[in-house]
C-alpha cells in the first residue's frame, strides 16, 4: 500500500500525471502521452504485416448493444452508464436548489442511450455481425479506445479511465487460437524490447459475486485468459499489462456472428493496457525519459 501511494505521488511530483481529486481519474502530461504514442507505434510495427482493419470508436457505446453483450451478468460493479437531465423548467429549478443546498440533485436524471465503453472491443461485435458472415479466413480488427471501469484506487495502474489497444480476431476456433498463440509470443518479444521484467500466467476476469467465483475458476480451468504481468506497484502482485483472451463462441453466439462456412464464429483478442505499460516504463527506468537506457530510447524513438 505504501509503495502504491509512493509511486502515485512520484508521478504527480514529476508532473507525469495530474490530480483531479478523484482516484483513478488523472490528466496526462505531454511526456506521458509521448511515451504512450511511441508504445502505440511499436505495437503497430509488430502487427502491421497482418493488415488488420483499423477502427476507432468513441469511449461511449450504444446502450442496447451493451445490454445485449452480457456485461451486466458478469461485471455489474464496473459498469458506468451515462445519465442526463431530462426535466422541465420546474425540475431545473429543483435541481439548482438541491445543488445549492448540497442535496442529491439526481432526481430528474435519466438513463441515456450511451454507456461508457468497458473494453475497446465491446462496440465491435454487433458492428461486425451486421456485415453478415465472415469472409474466408475470418477478420482481424485493430482498435483503441478510452475505457471506463468503476474501481477507484490509489494504485496508479488501476485507473477508472484508461486506453486499451486491441487486436480482435474472428474466425474458426483454430484461426483464433493461432492468433492468440502468435500474440503470446509477440507480446513477450515486445515487452523484452522495453527492457521490463515480466511473466506470463493464466488469469481470470473480475467476475462479480459468488456466481463470478465459479466463472473465474471455469475461465482458469479452461485456460481462456493469459496475462503478461509486470511489477509496477509491487512484485507480490504484478500488474497485467497485456492480456490474451479466447472468448470461445461467447460473442459469436451472442451476436449471431457466423464463419464463411456458416458455423458460429469464435473470437479472441489481445489487449494492451496503454497507461499500464507507460507506468511500468516510468517505474523501472525512472521518471526522466532522457535518462532511460539508450537501447530502449532507440526502440521507442528510433
Amino acid at each position: 500500500m505504501d509503495a502504491q501511494v509512493a509511486l502515485i505521488d512520484q508521478l504527480f511530483d514529476a508532473g507525469l500525471l495530474i490530480e483531479t481529486g478523484v482516484d483513478g481519474l488523472y490528466g496526462r502530461s505531454g511526456q506521458f502521452e509521448d511515451v504512450i504514442s511511441r508504445f502505440d507505434a511499436l505495437i503497430t510495427s509488430f502487427g502491421r504485416e497482418d493488415k488488420a482493419e483499423v477502427i476507432r470508436f468513441p469511449p461511449g457505446m450504444n446502450r442496447a448493444h451493451f445490454e445485449k453483450s452480457g456485461y451486466l451478468k458478469s461485471f455489474p460493479q464496473l459498469a458506468g452508464t451515462v445519465h442526463c437531465f431530462c426535466g422541465d423548467d420546474g425540475a431545473h429549478a429543483d435541481l439548482l436548489q438541491c445543488l445549492g443546498e448540497g442535496k442529491d440533485w439526481s432526481a430528474k436524471q435519466e438513463m441515456s442511450d450511451v454507456v461508457l465503453t468497458p473494453a475497446a472491443c465491446y462496440p465491435l461485435y454487433p458492428m461486425a455481425a451486421k456485415r453478415g458472415a465472415l469472409p474466408e479466413h475470418g477478420r482481424l480488427f485493430d482498435l483503441m479506445s478510452y475505457c471506463f471501469r468503476h474501481e477507484p484506487s490509489r494504485d496508479p495502474a488501476r485507473m477508472q479511465m484508461f486506453r486499451m489497444r486491441e487486436y480482435v480476431r474472428m474466425g474458426t476456433q483454430a484461426e483464433v487460437l493461432a492468433f492468440r498463440e502468435t500474440w503470446l509470443q509477440r507480446g513477450r518479444e515486445l515487452i523484452s524490447m522495453l527492457e521490463l521484467p515480466f511473466e506470463v500466467d493464466v488469469a481470470n476476469d473480475p467476475f462479480f459475486g459468488r456466481a463470478g467465483r465459479m466463472m473465474k475458476n471455469s475461465q482458469r480451468d479452461q485456460g481462456l485468459k493469459f496475462e503478461l504481468l509486470v511489477p509496477v506497484n509491487s512484485t507480490v502482485s504484478p500488474t497485467a499489462c497485456l492480456s490474451f483472451n479466447y472468448h470461445q463462441d461467447h460473442f459469436g453466439q451472442t451476436w449471431g456472428l457466423k464463419t464463411a462456412a456458416g458455423e458460429v464464429a469464435h473470437t479472441a483478442c489481445v489487449g494492451f493496457g496503454m497507461e499500464r505499460v507507460a507506468l511500468a516504463l516510468f517505474r523501472h527506468h525512472g521518471v526522466d525519459v532522457q535518462a532511460w537506457p539508450r537501447s530502449l530510447r532507440r526502440v521507442l524513438w528510433g
Binding site: G70, R210, M214, M215, S218, Q222
Partner: peptide, 27 residues
C-alpha cells in the same frame, strides 16, 4: 459457463445448501 452458474444457483435454492468455494468449479 453461464448456464452452469444458473444451475448452481437453482440447486442451492432447491436443496437449501450453499456451495463452498472448493466446489465452485467446472468439475
Amino acid at each position: 459457463s453461464f448456464a452452469s452458474v444458473q444451475l448452481m444457483l437453482a440447486i442451492e435454492d432447491r436443496f437449501g445448501v450453499e456451495f463452498p468455494d472448493r466446489y465452485l468449479n467446472r468439475r
